[in-house]
Computed example of a mutant assay.
Amino acid sequence: MTIFILGSGGVADLLHAPSTRAGMTELGYPAHVMAILGFWKFSARWRLRHRVFRW
């Protein structure tokens, strides 16, 4: 479940989805922060996926 949440959140941040953009601007973050967070969320999902399915 965590892998799906990180993956979908990362993709939404990377694609600058309107709902995600609205939330980030409401919190006062600039638009480029979404790309940085999206990259790291997606990277974390990839790493967790490999760690979980290796067991």
Rank of each mutant, 00 (worst) to 15 (best):
Y29L: 09
V52K: 14
A22E: 04
F39I: 02
G23K: 02
R51E: 08
G23F: 06
W46I: 15
R21S: 09
L6H: 03
A31Y: 02
P30K: 05
M34D: 01
S19G: 08
F42N: 04
G7W: 01
F42D: 04
A44F: 13
S43C: 13
W55D: 06
F42I: 08
L6K: 03
A44H: 06
R21I: 10
F42W: 11
L48E: 04
A17N: 09
R49D: 14
A12P: 01
L15S: 12
P30T: 08
V11L: 14
T20E: 03
E26A: 15
R21A: 10
S43W: 13
G7Y: 01
T20R: 08
R51W: 10
A44C: 13
G10I: 03
G28L: 10
L6S: 07
M1E: 09
G10Y: 02
I36N: 00
R47V: 15
V52A: 12
A22Q: 06
H50V: 02
L6I: 07
I36A: 04
M34F: 01
I3C: 12
E26K: 14
Y29V: 07
A44M: 14
A31P: 04
Y29R: 04
T25Y: 01
T2H: 03
W55S: 07
S43I: 14
L37S: 04
F4L: 14
F42A: 08
G23E: 05
R47M: 12
E26M: 13
F39D: 01
A17D: 10
V52Q: 14
R45M: 15
R49Q: 14
G9N: 07
A12H: 09
T20W: 06
F53S: 12
W55V: 09
G9A: 13
L27E: 10
G28I: 13
A44L: 15
R45T: 15
T2E: 11
G7S: 12
H32V: 14
T25I: 12
Y29A: 07
K41F: 13
G28V: 09
R21G: 02
T25P: 00
P30D: 10
A22R: 11
T2M: 09
L27Y: 09
T20D: 03
T20A: 06
F4A: 13
L14Y: 05
M24V: 11
G7P: 00
H16P: 00
D13K: 09
L48R: 04
R21P: 00
H32M: 10
F53A: 10
V11Y: 07
R54M: 00
S8I: 10
L6T: 04
R49W: 15
G7Q: 04
I3F: 11
L14N: 03
G10W: 04
L27R: 10
R51D: 06
H32K: 12
E26R: 14
S43T: 14
H50C: 01
A44P: 05
S19P: 11
Y29W: 05
H16S: 02
G9H: 05
R47T: 15
L6V: 05
A35I: 00
R49V: 15
